[in-house]
Design a protein around this nucleic acid. Structure first.
Length: 983
RNA sequence: GGGCGCGUAGCUCAGCGGUAGAGCACUACGUUGACAUCGUAGUGGCCACAGGUUCGAUCCCUGUCGCGCCCA
């Protein structure tokens, strides 16, 4: 059945993918040669809640290209897929689902029942992104699909994998090494999800706000002189005596938790007040005035209110100057004063009662409004200035985060950062020196700019808060028990509780038995249950202790940080771990260098003392065609699946690849995708042309290239060799755009534009028809092979329809031929022929000779090489330049086009057909351009310093160019002169 | 404010010491036996600006001006 006119991507893609999948074509090690070197890519795990967006499409296209390329080269390839459990996002999705279907809420059903719901949801909807990646053509080993929560309590027994054990083991090891600690710290608190988040999960958003100025009365009758008038140099000339300080704040409601006022220690206006006190309005709390450089004398009044429990900077001031810490909010960022002993301490009872009456339980924003109103009414509101300022927001919840004082778990990153920095420093140094060695145990980051980003962050690293107050996640493997006082009595106070860390309760119970010297250890749900249980066993005079487990779970990124070893089966010494670790290349977006890349480096080095990968290729962002970030709110999102529906996966992939210049954002337009869809059609039709000319009859994949005699055929073999080298070089250097563009230029510019055209007359000649069919079959096979990593579907379909194949294209052998296949003579000859044809076409078009008109041509002069070339290629020259016959003459006939080429000149008689003036204008323009070039060349050669200092080959080349150009110019001048004589 | 980049054809971008390239768009012509999802030809550039290094700078260095991103 003859080929269709176009490739039906919508029909073929699913069929082809299913065939690959069923054949196990993507399985680890598929198509590997014996003893092949391993090549492993870890997919950046998409969220289990995720669906494919343009960034994924780009990211995974690049990974797939590398994967397919290595697989075809016979390497032992694993592209490891998987998803991460996305703690907050998944919990949010499932909670929303519960609300929609009017089921009990998370809190109503409790932790265990809720987690069951999450697992149910995951089983039902968690595989969506996998199906979407398949549509893109991603050749992952899906049989190994991993999940960062696999093996966790509650996971379905049918699910494979045990990532959970790896995560727990790492936590315990790092804890035992003293690299993880618990501490009461100010953290970024998300009041919507009621959990701590890491500083990376905080976005700064610029908002319109106010700076409220509040008056705090000085205590004990103190006063100071406040300047009110200034001379032209800014010196104060008049003062007024004030008995209050003015502080400015963007968050007036936090004054309920103020414990001090800071001024700069050198600020002459205030230095005598340091050590004195103010009395806070509302609460009547007496708080000290402290000196701290954090107070900027030039900002506002130079006085800053200090709320250590609700601001990171204030926390620092409080620590340095010994201020109290008063938390005045609950986990939802509502004011919490009732029963708040810290708050009440030191304040008059009636004022506390009034404050509770007015603010307790109110949301922070409501409280702010009420407080400002009150300040206005009572006369201590000094003024309001509108201001734009940055407000930290949770990247998931989009609500303003609240600095919040809680107990959290931290990784002491400062202690594990050095090896991660060192590995990249060494990797980059080797890369710079051109001596990069994939097996040397260091890591390079490409492009170099991103290595700088990596250094910058790691060199200034902060402790990593890894605990989250969520349910969906790896529960921290820590149990608490009472502390023991010197006299042996139990101490249940929070600060003295004993921490036990172990991979299971059994392990922990053993520790506890030893520590307390008891026979039995009970596990209880929480502190109060444990206490109750303890009292009961005490009354039964039982020798036991009751422990309760840390309820918090680990940051999802903590588990993702173990992705390379975790997916390969660590801590088991699996064959895959042996073979594929350290992995080869990580392909990822610049936005998760901190979140993920840096943490994987630190954690792998800390846990198994090896780098996780030797190369990190960082790609840029896919933007819309105007350069805007794609976002739902802007409505400029391009859905990769819709694009695939419309243009086919190959076109989408090729577009992204061709635009993947290192370190540069992509501005994607559908027009561009359409252009590359047309390119796939072009390839399809070249194969169809071949089919119509019997090229595929009896064709089978050949192991060695053909050895044709005709110049045209020898030439295209050389061009093929060139592009193969170019593609390998480009991919070796992660220049995906260069690979795509080289293939585009070759397939379209060489094969379709010229070779197919040249082949037409060759097919008519029985002498050359056979070898041309052979050569064309081989060349088109090479196009399919070399294009396959970028456009797998159409190439696989062509492969199947055009010949007898031992293996599908996905496992075809990647070629290694190179410059030995370039026939320099054929190359020169074909370039000359192409040049001549282009000259003739151009001249014809410029003087408006109808395209259909066949003309005679006169050969005026021609050197030997030219005669040979012309003789061998006359048929195709005549056809492509639409020349009827060629004759020789010493002089050009009157009224002719003049064509000057290397080594000779031709004339095309056109008496009566063309406008002489037009031809004169054309020649004059050509000559003018040529003379300009020649002027430059002469200038350079006339400069003795150039001849002296420039490399010899550059000088020689310049001379040759000049000579050839002068020759051409001479011929053009002669032709012009003739035309002038003609009038 | 600190850090990292980027200003090249109308647009999107390659190139990065030897005098500028691609795709798209545009113009003209064209149904030549693969392809109109096409072909042929063409228009279009003080390579942001100013200095410096060099025989030679779009490319290297310094500064200026514009733009972007990340971190405060």
């Amino acid at each position: 059945m003859p080929m269709e006119k176009t490739f039906d991507a919508a029909e073929a893609e699913a069929r082809l993918y299913a065939a690959w999948d069923q054949a196990g074509a993507f399985a680890a090690g598929a198509n590997a040669k014996p003893g092949a070197e391993p090549f492993c890519i870890m997919i950046p795990p998409p969220n289990v809640t995720g669906s494919l967006h343009m960034g994924h499409a780009f990211n995974n296209t690049l990974q797939d290209i590398l994967t397919r390329w290595h697989r075809m080269r016979g390497h032992d390839v694993l592209w490891q897929p998987g998803q991460d459990h996305a703690g907050i996002a998944t919990q949010m999705v499932v909670e929303r689902e519960l609300a929609r279907s009017q089921q009990p809420s998370r809190r109503e059903m409790g932790r265990e029942a809720f987690l069951e719901k999450v697992w149910e949801w995951k089983a039902q909807s968690g595989g969506r992104i996998v199906e979407q990646l398949k549509r893109l053509g991603a050749s992952c080993d899906w049989s190994r699909n991993a999940f960062t929560m696999s093996g966790a309590p509650g996971a379905p027994a049918t699910d494979k994998g045990n990532f959970h054990d790896a995560v727990i083991k790492v936590f315990v090891e790092l804890y035992n090494k003293g690299l993880i600690y618990r501490g009461k710290r100010l953290v970024n608190w998300d009041p919507h999800f009621e959990t701590a988040i890491s500083d990376l999960e905080v976005e700064q958003v610029e908002l319109n706000g106010n700076l409220w100025r509040l008056r705090y009365p000085l205590a004990d009758g103190a006063t100071y002189e406040h300047p009110v008038a200034f001379d032209e140099d800014g010196r104060a000339t008049e003062w007024e005596t004030r008995d209050y300080l003015v502080v400015a704040t963007t968050r007036p409601e936090t004054m309920l938790g103020d414990t001090g006022v800071a001024v700069h220690p050198d600020d002459i206006r205030y230095e005598h007040l340091i050590g004195k006190h103010v009395v806070l309005p509302i609460t009547g709390r007496r708080v000290p005035i402290v000196g701290d450089a954090y107070a900027d004398p030039d900002k506002g009044t130079g006085c800053v209110k200090i709320t250590p429990a609700h601001d990171f900077n204030d926390w620092g001031v409080g620590q340095r100057t010994g201020l109290r810490v008063i938390n005045i909010m609950d986990t939802r960022a509502a004011i919490a004063l009732q029963g708040n002993a810290d708050f009440a301490e030191g304040c008059p009872e009636d004022q506390i009662a009034a404050a509770i009456e007015m603010f307790d339980g109110r949301d922070r924003y409501e409280a702010r409004e009420a407080l400002v109103t009150l300040a206005g009414d009572e006369g201590w509101l000094d003024g309001i200035d509108a201001e734009r300022h940055m407000v930290p927001h949770g990247d998931r919840s989009k609500v303003a985060i609240e600095p919040f004082l809680t107990d959290q778990w931290f990784v002491d990153t400062a202690k594990i950062v050095e090896p991660a920095l060192d590995a990249v420093r060494r990797g980059m140094a080797a890369q710079e020196a051109g001596q990069f060695d994939e097996t040397a145990g260091y890591t390079r980051i490409l492009p170099e700019r991103d290595a700088k980003t990596y250094y910058h962050w790691l060199e200034n690293i902060e402790p990593w808060c890894i605990s989250r107050q969520l349910w969906w996640g790896h529960q921290i493997p820590v149990w608490y028990g009472p502390g023991v006082e010197k006299d042996g009595t139990a101490d249940y106070s929070a600060e003295n509780q004993k921490v036990f860390c172990g991979a299971s309760f059994e392990e922990v119970a053993a520790q506890a038995r030893k520590f307390y010297g008891v026979g039995t250890v009970h596990e209880k749900a929480d502190f109060s249950a444990a206490l109750e249980d303890q009292l009961e066993s005490f009354s039964n005079s039982e020798s036991s202790v009751s422990l309760w487990r840390e309820p918090d779970v680990l940051d999802t990124w903590f588990s993702s940080g173990l992705w390379p070893i975790g997916t390969l089966g660590w801590p088991e010494e699996t064959p895959e771990l042996q073979k594929y670790f350290p992995t080869s290349v990580l392909v990822t977006g610049f936005d998760i260098i901190f979140f993920w890349v840096a943490r994987m480096m630190m954690m792998q080095l800390a846990v198994v003392d090896q780098i996780p990968f030797h190369t990190v290729y960082v790609h840029a962002l896919v933007r819309d065609e105007k350069g805007k970030k794609m976002s739902k709110s802007l409505g400029n999102v391009l859905d990769p699946l819709e694009l695939i529906d419309e243009y086919g996966a190959d076109a989408v992939r090729f577009t992204l690849t061709a635009m993947a210049a290192m370190g540069r954002d992509l501005k994607l337009s559908t027009q561009r995708v359409a252009g590359y869809r047309n390119f796939t059609t072009k390839l399809w039709n070249a194969c169809r042309f071949a089919e119509m000319n019997g090229v595929w009859e009896g064709h089978a994949t050949r192991t060695a290239p053909p050895e044709p005699k005709a110049t045209v055929n020898r030439w295209i073999l050389g061009e093929t060799a060139r592009v193969r080298e170019a593609v390998d070089e480009a991919l070796n250097g992660f220049r995906f755009d260069a690979a795509a563009n080289a293939l585009y230029a070759f397939t379209r510019g060489k094969v379709c534009d010229w070779y197919v055209e040249f082949a037409k007359p060759l097919f008519d000649d029985p002498e050359t028809a056979g070898e041309t069919r052979e050569t064309m079959a081989w060349v088109l096979d090479q196009c399919m092979i070399l294009l396959h990593p970028i456009m797998p579907f159409i190439t696989e379909e062509l492969w199947a329809t055009t010949g007898t194949r031992a293996k599908p294209l996905v496992h075809a052998e990647w070629p290694t031929y190179g410059s030995e296949m370039i026939d320099a003579a054929a190359d020169r000859e074909m370039n000359w022929v192409v040049g001549l044809i282009e000259e003739i076409r151009s001249a014809r078009a410029q003087v408006h000779v109808p395209v259909g008109l066949k003309l005679d041509m006169v050969q005026l002069s021609l050197d030997e090489a030219g005669r040979g070339a012309l003789g061998r290629n006359e048929a195709l020259l005549k056809r492509l330049a639409r020349i009827e016959g060629i004759s020789e003459a010493a002089e050009a006939p009157k009224g002719a086009l003049t064509i000057a080429v290397e080594g000779g000149a031709f004339a095309i008689p056109l008496a009566g057909i063309i406008d002489i003036a037009e031809e004169r204008a054309r020649l004059a323009k050509t000559l003018e351009k040529l003379q300009k070039d020649l002027g430059g060349l002469r200038g350079r050669l006339g400069n003795p310093k150039f001849v002296e200092s420039a490399p010899e080959d550059v000088v020689d080349e310049t001379r040759a160019k000049l000579e050839q150009g002068e020759d051409e110019a001479e011929k053009l001048s002669a032709a012009l002169k003739r035309l002038a004589e003609l009038g």
